[in-house]
C-alpha cells in the first residue's frame, strides 16, 4: 500500500492532548491521518457523516495526554471504554498485523487494555504490567536518551540502527514500568527472549543509569515495549516532539539533520507500505 493511501486513526477522548502533533508527524510524511473521537468509533451522539469504523484504518495511534484526567490510574478510564466497546475490533486489528502505537498516555492505555505486553496472546484479560508513579513522585518533563535494544521485531524501529542512542524527551508522572514483584525477573527475561523490549533509558555514554537519566525508576530502564509480533508498540517518551531537529532540547549545539523521533514514524509507514 502506498504511503499516500495509508489511513491513520489518531484516537482521542477528553483530556487527550498530544493528538495534533502526532497527527502532523504522519501528515508530513505523506500519509492520511485523521483525528477521531472515540464516540465516532462507538457511534454515540454522532451523525452518520461523523461515524467511523476502526477497520477503515491501517494504523491506530493513541496519543499522549491525560485522558479523562487520568484520575483513577493513568490510562485506566480510556482503556475501560475501549475494552467495553471495541474489544473485538481491536483484537481483529492486531491479528491482521495492523500496527498500533501508544505514546506516553497511549502506552499507559495499551498496558491497561492488555494489548501490551500481551505475553500470552493478543489482548490479556487483565493488565500484565503497570506504569506506576515515578520514583520522584513528581511529573518529570526532561530530555531523555533512548538506546534502541530491539533486534528487529518491532515494526516502529526498523529504521533506527540497533544500539543507536536517540534524543527523545519524556513528560509524565506515571512512567515506571513494573511487573508483579515475584515474577518480574522471569517476565523481563521472557520479554528479552521474545525481542519485545525496544528502548531503554541511558546516559550520554550509553550506559543504563539512574535518575535523572532514567526519569521514573522503570524496571531495567525500559522505556518502550512491543507485543510478540512487534506490531503493537508503546513508549513513554515522545517521538512526535522531536520530529524536527529544531525541537531537540540542545539543537542549537548541533543544528543539522532530522529530529530523532522521525524514524519511528518512517519505520511504521515503511512497514505498512511493504506488508499491506
Amino acid at each position: 500500500m502506498k504511503v499516500s493511501d495509508t489511513r491513520v486513526c489518531v484516537l482521542v477522548i477528553e483530556g487527550t492532548n498530544c493528538e495534533e502533533e502526532s497527527y502532523l508527524c504522519f501528515k508530513r510524511l505523506g500519509a492520511r491521518p485523521e483525528k477521531v473521537h472515540l464516540k465516532q468509533l462507538t457511534g454515540t451522539d454522532v451523525t452518520s457523516d461523523e461515524r467511523r469504523s476502526l477497520s477503515d484504518y491501517q494504523l491506530l495511534v493513541l496519543p499522549g495526554g491525560f485522558s479523562a484526567g487520568d484520575y483513577v490510574r493513568a490510562g485506566a478510564i480510556f482503556a475501560a471504554r475501549l475494552r467495553s466497546r471495541l474489544s473485538k475490533d481491536l483484537t481483529e486489528f492486531v491479528r491482521e498485523g495492523k500496527p498500533i502505537l501508544g505514546i506516553c498516555n497511549g502506552f499507559q492505555i495499551l498496558v491497561e487494555t492488555g494489548l501490551l505486553p500481551a505475553m500470552s496472546g493478543t489482548m490479556s484479560d487483565v493488565p500484565e504490567a503497570v506504569l506506576g508513579t515515578n520514583d520522584s513522585a513528581r511529573f518529570e518533563c526532561r530530555p531523555t536518551l533512548l538506546k534502541n535494544v530491539n533486534n528487529g521485531n518491532c515494526v516502529f524501529t526498523s529504521r533506527i540502527p540497533i544500539g543507536k542512542i536517540s534524543h527523545i524527551p519524556s513528560a509524565h508522572a506515571e512512567g515506571k514500568l513494573m511487573f508483579p514483584v515475584d515474577r518480574a525477573k522471569g517476565i523481563v527475561k521472557e520479554l528479552e527472549e521474545n525481542d519485545q523490549i525496544v528502548f531503554k533509558y541511558v546516559d550520554s555514554d550509553g550506559r543504563l543509569a539512574g535518575y535523572p537519566w532514567c526519569p521514573n525508576g522503570s524496571t531495567d530502564n525500559i522505556a518502550g515495549v512491543c507485543n510478540r509480533d512487534g506490531n503493537v508498540f508503546g513508549m513513554m517518551p515522545h517521538p512526535e516532539r522531536v520530529f524536527f531537529r529544531f525541537t531537540h532540547p540542545d539543537w542549537t549545539r548541533s543544528p543539522d539533520g532530522a529530529g530523532d523521533g522521525r524514524a519511528v514514524f518512517e519505520s511504521v509507514l515503511a512497514y505498512i507500505s511493504k506488508k499491506m
Binding site: 518529570e140 534524543h167 515522545h238 516532539r241 532540547p249 542549537t252
Partner: peptide
C-alpha cells in the same frame, strides 16, 4: 519547578526554558 511543567506539549517549543548541553 520548570521540570514539573510540561513545556513541550504541542511540540512547538523550539527554545525551552532550560537550555544547554544535555545534562
Amino acid at each position: 519547578v520548570i521540570r514539573q511543567y510540561d513545556h513541550e506539549v504541542r511540540a512547538n517549543t523550539v527554545l525551552k526554558p532550560l537550555q544547554g548541553k544535555t545534562g
